[in-house]
Amino acid sequence: MKKKSGGGEGGGANWMDTYGDMVTLLLCFFVLLYSMSTVDENKWKALVQSFNPNATPAETEIEAGDSHGPFAEANDKEPGVADPDVIKEALEAAQEAMQEQINQQVDQLYDQLKQYIEESGKNIEITKGDGYVFLSLVDTVFFYPDKYDMLPEGKALLDNMGPVLKAAAPAIDEIRISGHTAQADPNEENDPEGDRMLSAERAAQVTYYLQQLCRPTGDGKPGIEPARIVGQSYGQHRPIAVNDDEHRKENRRVEMTITGKDLGNKLGDAVEQYYTQREGGSLKEDDAGSSAPTEDDSGSAPSSSGQEG
């Protein structure tokens, strides 16, 4: 008997079964991906150990955008990125800690210099201000009248001060050496040219000696850069005593101002401020540091008579 042909047997819609299976697998795949993106750490460890009982639990790596670790700072605009305000606060805290360390080094520098001066019995005045140490060195230690050559006593004093200054070098912004003269006649000014040159020479002599003494040696030990040691000349124009025979020698002096670094100064340190001025930048009074313009900054000058008494 002839078999009837069945047009519908085998069905043209059987492909739907395969398609449905594929869609189900894709759905399971995306559900699995989603579940992994929000995995619970404890459940993940349990799953891993169920497959491998000998596995050693390890800390899971924190991804950007997570609510833990270094990306936990609240930042609504950019989740997973540290908040700029938090970064700013951290930098300010670090700067404050560094500034406190600098202040402590300046205090220690003052204490060591004061102790040395007291033990030596030298005629030196030392004071401490906010972020600086000030020393006044009279001629009985450094110079004879009308002379700028340093006496051996002056060199010996700087030799002892040098190691103390070098130890504090990371905290020192600038060392400013100021040269002064005494007025020979209380009723008549010194010769202006000779007066200025004599005080400039005195400042230059101390500046040069200190520069050679404190220069960085390249062996890893701290040193003071020559750019941070500055000499200047005042002549007779900033006396601290009357110019009579008894007190004149107090005006014949060299002064040293040691300034500590101020990390909060937006203009930078003394060297940076110099280049700011050179480029025509603004130095406001409330921001300017130790490198504000000073009268008659000078180095070495030709030998001449200051007509000093």
Results as ranks from 00 to 15, higher is better:
L137N: 02
T127W: 07
Q101R: 08
P79Q: 13
A90H: 05
Q99H: 12
G131H: 11
G80F: 14
K77I: 12
D83R: 02
E118F: 05
A97F: 08
V86E: 04
E73T: 13
A90L: 06
D83G: 04
E125S: 11
K122F: 14
H68V: 12
E96K: 14
D66K: 10
Q112V: 07
K122Q: 15
K77H: 07
F71C: 09
D107I: 02
A94I: 09
E100S: 15
L137G: 00
P70C: 05
I126E: 01
A74M: 09
D111N: 12
L137M: 09
M98S: 11
Q115W: 01
Q115T: 14
V106S: 01
F134N: 07
E100M: 11
Y110P: 00
L91Q: 09
V106N: 03
Q112S: 10
T127R: 12
S67W: 10
Q95P: 00
G129E: 09
Q101G: 10
D111P: 01
F134W: 09
D76W: 02
D111G: 02
I126M: 01
A82E: 13
E78S: 03
G69P: 06
D130A: 14
V133C: 04
Y116N: 01
A93F: 03
E89K: 13
D111S: 15
Q99W: 09
K88H: 04
A94E: 15
G129F: 14
Q104A: 15
A90Y: 06
P70N: 04
K77W: 08
F134S: 09
G80V: 08
D107T: 06
A90P: 00
Y116W: 11
A72Y: 07
T127E: 15
